[in-house]
């Protein structure tokens, strides 16, 4: 992957997308091949790779602010600096006013914003996202996708998104990696040439360039599902 890229991995369920992500994150050991970040092999989980999980992985016993600042706390950033950075990211994900709430008082979409802010706040080199919007309702998902796009522009992060949602992959990704069904292997790479700042749902659905790419990916994925 190159710097600042937004890559999306799509494939039928059970093809090992989540496993791939867990290996990249260093949470699972790998048998063959190598995983490197900036040329350094991955040995275990570390703060250079931030992960946003499928389920809500934010800690229920920490407030929103303490969850977002958790990464900085673990890196030993002093409190003043931490507070400043946390405020910045609270604003970025639009959670101002909710800093002192506990996660169980938030909606599913808000919890996922906290998870996103927590990962961003730790300032990783690359951000890995595992179906981050799978557990939220359709309207919220669309809003969050547009916001993720906005945040990706604002922070210029390198992001790898794993999803089974073809629309999501096509909407967010610069490049989409399509995987085969189990055992998952790379099947095709689809590049999407739409400028990032033009990616708004209302506009892209009317854009033939977008729909064509999306349908291409959809066909690739459906071919895999059909061969059950």
């Amino acid at each position: 992957m190159y710097d600042g890229e937004f890559a999306a991995v799509v494939g039928p369920s059970g093809c090992g997308k989540t496993t791939l992500l867990n290996i990249l994150a260093g949470l699972l050991p790998y048998r063959h091949g190598t995983v490197q970040v900036d040329g350094v092999p991955v040995k275990g989980p570390g703060s250079d790779r931030g992960v946003v999980f499928q389920e809500h992985a934010i800690l229920p016993w920490r407030t929103v602010a303490r969850n977002i600042g958790h990464g900085l706390e673990l890196q030993g950033v002093p409190r003043q600096e931490r507070r400043r950075r946390v405020r910045e990211f609270v604003e970025l994900v639009g959670l101002a006013g909710f800093e002192e709430r506990y996660p169980h008082e938030l909606s599913g979409g808000m919890k996922q914003r906290v998870a996103l802010a927590r990962t961003l706040c730790a300032n990783p080199v690359i951000m890995l996202m595992d179906e981050p919007f799978a557990a939220v309702d359709a309207q919220t998902r669309i809003t969050l996708q547009e916001e993720l796009n906005r945040i990706a522009i604002a922070t210029r992060k390198t992001i790898l998104l794993v999803t089974h949602n073809v629309d999501e992959a096509a909407f967010l990704g610069d490049r989409c990696f399509v995987f085969t069904r189990r055992p998952g292997r790379l099947k095709a790479t689809v590049t999407i040439h739409i400028p990032r700042d033009r990616r708004i749902w209302k506009e892209v659905v009317a854009d033939p360039a977008f729909t064509a790419r999306r349908d291409e990916i959809l066909e690739l994925v459906r071919a895999e599902v059909r061969v059950e």
Binding site: G44, V51, A57, L59, G71, L74, T119
Partner: peptide, 21 residues
């Protein structure tokens, strides 16, 4: 839930921090 451990590990926590936090 395992995902809590994973989330905190991905933020760069040590084993001891995972236990206490």
């Amino acid at each position: 839930p395992r995902v809590y451990e994973h989330g905190v590990l991905a933020l760069g926590a040590t084993r001891w921090k995972v236990i206490t936090q």
